[in-house]
């Protein structure tokens, strides 16, 4: 049964079960007004959703357990469990980290500078060797900024630098 922890579906079922429980329990904090103090208030629909979600999660967990039980111990984990290896996920995670930093820097250093830095960081992460890519990055960012600023009249974040 150790194989169950390697099954993606097990984790999907568990996480959605926890989400269902969370949604259901949060609905008890909703205050009902006198007018809507019946079962059709603000809690009505979220509770239906959470209950169905919990039932679906249990169905998925049950089917995963049954599948693992029916397979022998030595059998490989199956499904797409290899999709969650560090090797595959390290680049996306590095970029997610860059995006988080980018989001916080955006207010400070403005769209042009921050986006160029993000572009360069991503090129570095994906090991882009061609120098022209690093030149294209600021050109692309400035074009996007100009199109939105002057054509669509959308002022992108300027930060303390003003652009």
């Amino acid at each position: 049964m150790k194989n169950i922890l390697k099954k993606t579906d097990f984790w999907v079922g568990l996480i959605s079960l926890l989400l269902g429980i969370f949604v259901f329990s949060v609905t008890f904090t909703f205050k009902q007004t006198l007018i809507t103090d019946n079962f059709l208030g603000a809690t009505f629909f979220p509770r239906i959703i959470s209950v169905v979600m919990m039932l679906l999660s249990i169905a998925l967990l049950w089917s995963t357990f049954t599948a693992v039980k029916n397979s022998s111990e030595d059998e490989p984990a199956g499904d797409n469990s290899t999709a969650f290896t560090i090797e595959r996920m390290k680049r996306p995670f590095s970029v997610i980290f860059c995006l988080a930093v980018y989001y916080f820097l955006l207010r400070l250093s403005g769209f042009c500078i921050t986006s160029t830095l993000l572009f360069w960081a991503m090129l570095f992460i994906i090991k882009a060797e061609k120098k022209k890519f690093y030149v294209i990055a600021p050109v692309f960012v400035v074009i996007v900024y100009a199109v939105f600023r002057y054509l669509f009249l959308v002022q992108l974040p300027t930060g303390i630098v003003g652009f």
Partner: peptide, 30 residues
């Protein structure tokens, strides 16, 4: 390929749709 997972996705979307003010009572949810 897995219908249950398709429905879990659908109900996750329905949960996301309930975020914000309740359309009838105006009570803020989630």
């Amino acid at each position: 390929n897995n219908i249950v997972k398709g429905f879990i996705g659908g109900f996750f979307g329905l949960f996301l749709a309930t975020i914000g003010m309740d359309p009838v009572t105006g009570f803020p949810r989630f």
